[in-house]
């Protein structure tokens, strides 16, 4: 099939950027979305042009590196799917596809479709861990964890840190990402000692980074490739409020 792409091109953080139109022919329905862009890039390189820069690595939907706003939807039209796992069979001949980077002040564009997501790392630095020096751990069976808690913690732990939630959120909020980690650790017995301080520190860091406030629009869950549920945000708020009340 033949497609028209409108791709956001921006040479660097200081450039204004613009949508550039490319025609691309003979796209196979079995190609992945990124493979389609690979083909475009090969052509651009040979023509001496700058290939479209985009983040990607594992290409199997787990590293969280790929990040594209495709026709106004984070990660594109298929539910629970990262950009790299989207395949061209979802498009038809003659379609026009608009491709943009994640947009949020805390995610500045580095180049083209590549953004800087280090704000997420800093949120984790603020408290997204359980403090346990190597070698000091008790036997793994010392503390049984009810299966249901372990499963629920797992559901939250599957977040791949892609940032689609922020990109899709009309408020540019990072609540789903932050809540996923707070929920994961907060549901486990090992996570209890630092539960309150963790929630406070992470929420405060999230605000400091300049993410917007959550109004529970649910746009985040809807595009989240791992389907992290909105409940996690309620948990985060509960932990946060409890911790704030305690320490005033």
């Amino acid at each position: 099939m033949n497609l028209t792409l409108k791709v956001w091109r921006q040479s660097g953080p200081d450039d204004d950027g613009r949508l550039v139109r490319y025609e691309i022919e003979d796209v196979s329905p079995d190609m992945s979305f990124l493979e389609m862009l690979d083909v475009l890039n090969e052509r651009l390189i040979l023509a001496g042009d700058d290939p479209v820069a985009f983040d990607h690595d594992c290409r199997e939907g787990i590293c969280g590196m790929c990040s594209m706003m495709i026709d106004g939807v984070a990660h594109g039209p298929q539910k629970n799917t990262t950009t790299c796992q989207l395949h061209m069979r979802h498009y038809k001949d003659g379609d026009t596809i608009v491709i943009e980077p994640w947009r949020a002040r805390p995610f500045p564009v580095v180049k083209d479709l590549v953004v800087d997501r280090s704000a997420f790392d800093r949120i984790i630095q603020a408290g997204g861990f359980i403090s346990v020096p190597a070698g000091s751990a008790p036997d793994a069976h010392a503390t049984p964890v009810p299966k249901l808690d372990a499963d629920a913690a797992f559901d939250a732990a599957t977040c791949i840190g892609c940032g689609a939630c922020v990109a899709a959120c009309p408020n540019g909020s990072a609540s789903l990402f932050t809540a996923a980690k707070i929920t994961h650790l907060g549901l486990l017995p090992q996570g209890q000692p630092e539960r309150g301080s963790r929630a406070r520190a992470m929420v405060e860091q999230m605000d400091e980074e300049g993410f917007g406030g959550c109004t529970n629009t649910g746009e985040c869950t809807a595009v989240c490739p791992k389907g992290i549920p909105l409940d996690t945000i309620a948990r985060m708020n509960a932990d946060y409020l409890r911790a704030s009340r305690k320490s005033g």
Binding site: F129, I130, V132, A134, G135, S136, A137, P138, D139, A140, H141, T143, P144, V145, P146, K147, A150, D151, A153, F154, A157, H184, L185, L188, Q190, G191
Partner: peptide
């Protein structure tokens, strides 16, 4: 043997059985 202990202490959510054990 120590790896599993370390990972569990860090909050790695390994699969568990109904008894709560790994």
């Amino acid at each position: 043997v120590n790896i599993i202990d370390q990972a569990v202490a860090q909050g790695v959510p390994f699969a568990r059985e109904y008894g709560g054990l790994l």
